[in-house]
Every structure is written in structure tokens, then in C-alpha cells.
Design a binder for these strands. Structure first.
Lengths: 142, 142
DNA sequence: CTGAGTGCAAACTTTTTGCACAATA
DNA sequence: TATTGTGCAAAAAGTTTGCACTCAG
């Protein structure tokens, strides 16, 4: 995971962007936090790595990372904007616990709806799927 | 569709809520607009039906309708909160055009991921699926 | 007539922008 | 050194809340 962060920093540099301590911190925060984290959490984690990271910089850095294809926005249905490393490669979905709000990654993708879209004259190029329910820890409420 | 609105108003009344001209207007706006509309659009449409509807009332009414199971929130990945009539019954997904932003309803649901969730110790009780791409009118960009 | 519902204004939350300063390449 | 990136403060945008007034039941 640390090597991966360096690779991404190189990618930024190659794209003509500058590598700063703040960006490194945001990237490391993303790498350590796992998927679908909101901006506040990313900011807090980044601060633990490098105290001089402002919230504004986190917003701007995330936008830059998305632009470079290093990170992506994730929308889960609550009102928070979330981000995670990786783009379409490493495609996955999320299991969102309705009880504790935890989010875990689901790598399988049994999706057969592309055809359905095409039947509507719609060309499906991407999709987003969230499974909502209760995680093993919480269990289903009575 | 007009009968359906009256039925929903009755449902509100039975639940001890009051039926006002504003609520009727919001409900009619939802019925006429189709699925996944944002609050601003609902407000504008409601105003055309009954000019004395404030934005705040639209927010509060939508919340009440969701609480009564008459309407539901829809999250599509842009930053807007959207609403539409109907709840889990009438389950459907959306085809979101990346070019014009139009949203159309997809009634089919070929979802086989519930099993996948269960394998993770996760009990799936609901899911959300958006297919992104290009509608027939827009076509796929070069 | 009594409490649920409404409108307005103000408060809040989240995200964006302007501008002077700092630091990378 | 030439810019890109940063921080702060302020502005926007979207949503919620307090309060007095209105109206459905």
C-alpha cells in the first residue's frame, strides 16, 4: 500500500501536477481509510499525518485526484460526498449497513441489466449499485 | 393519475395528517413530473398549481410524504436530493443520461447480488442501482 | 377552537471562490 | 524564478429551525 501511494504521486507528477506534503497526506489518508470515506473523515486522517492540511486543500486535492483518475467520487445515498482510491478498474460495489452505517467492499458484480438498458435505446457505460441491509455485526433488527 | 393523488391525500388524512392546498399541490407536482425530481423542480411545479407554496413547505411536505410511505428519496449521484412518488412497491431503477441528465424509469430488475451480500454475512434488504450512459436521443459521443 | 401546517427570516452545513503568500519543479 | 498549490476568510448553495400567524378538522 505504501508503494501504491508513491506510484500515484509519480502519476500526478507526470501529469504536470506538483507533489506537496498535503497531497501526500491526503493520498495516504485515502489509502489507509478504505473505501467510501467522507471528506470530513479524510481531512481528519490527513491531519494526523500532516497537521498543516486545511479542509479547502482536501477538497481541491480530491478534485485533482479524481481528475487524474487516481480517486473517484462515491455516492451512497446519505447526503455525504464520499471518495475512495481507484477508478473503474477495481470496479466494485458496496454493502451499506442500515444500522451502523459501515461500508464494506463487494468485489463481485452480477449485473445483467446492461441489456435491459439497451432495450430502452439507452447505452449503458457504467453503473452504480448499493446493497442496503444489515452487517454481520449488527444483525437484522427485530 | 388524478385518482391516485386523491387516494394518497386520503391516506395522509387517515394517518392523522392534515390535507392542505399546499400538500395537494406538492403531491400533484410529483405525480405530473415523473420520477427522480429535485426539490427545486418540485417547488417550481407546485407553484404553478398553487402559487402560495413556500420552499420550506415543500421540504417539510416531502419529508411528511416519505414518512407516510407515499414518496421516497432518490439519490442519483449528482448532489441533488431527489424525490418521487411510490415506495418499495413499484420498485424500479433509473437510466441516467450522462449527456443530458435525463432520467428514465427502468422497471426490470435483474439483480443477483443478494446472494453475494449474504456470503459476506450481510443481510440485504434493499438495493439501489443506477445505470449510467447515453439515452437514445443523445447517443454515445465520439 | 385547538393543534398541525405555513411563511418568513435567520441559522446551519457543506462546498466553492478570491486573494495574498508559500513552495515545487 | 515561474507557477502551481495552500490557507484564510468570505461567499454560495442547499437544508433546517424558531416563531408568530393561519386554517383544516
Amino acid at each position: 500500500m505504501p508503494g501504491r501511494v508513491d506510484d500515484m504521486l509519480d502519476q500526478l507528477r507526470s501529469a504536470g501536477r506538483r507533489v506537496t506534503a498535503q497531497r501526500r497526506a491526503v493520498l495516504q489518508a485515502l489509502a489507509r481509510l478504505g473505501c467510501a470515506q467522507d471528506v470530513e473523515a479524510i481531512h481528519a486522517r490527513a491531519r494526523r499525518i500532516h497537521p498543516r492540511v486545511g479542509l479547502v486543500t482536501v477538497y481541491r486535492t480530491l478534485e485533482a485526484l479524481v481528475g487524474e483518475g487516481v480517486a473517484q467520487r462515491v455516492v451512497l445515498g446519505d447526503d455525504r460526498t464520499r471518495y475512495e482510491l481507484g477508478q473503474e478498474h477495481g470496479h466494485h460495489h458496496h454493502l451499506v449497513c442500515l444500522s451502523c452505517g459501515s461500508v464494506q467492499r463487494l468485489d463481485e458484480c452480477h449485473l445483467e441489466s446492461k441489456r435491459a438498458g439497451r432495450r430502452h435505446g439507452f447505452t449503458v457505460t457504467a453503473h452504480r449499485l448499493e446493497l442496503l441491509g444489515y452487517c454481520a455485526k449488527c444483525g437484522v433488527p427485530a
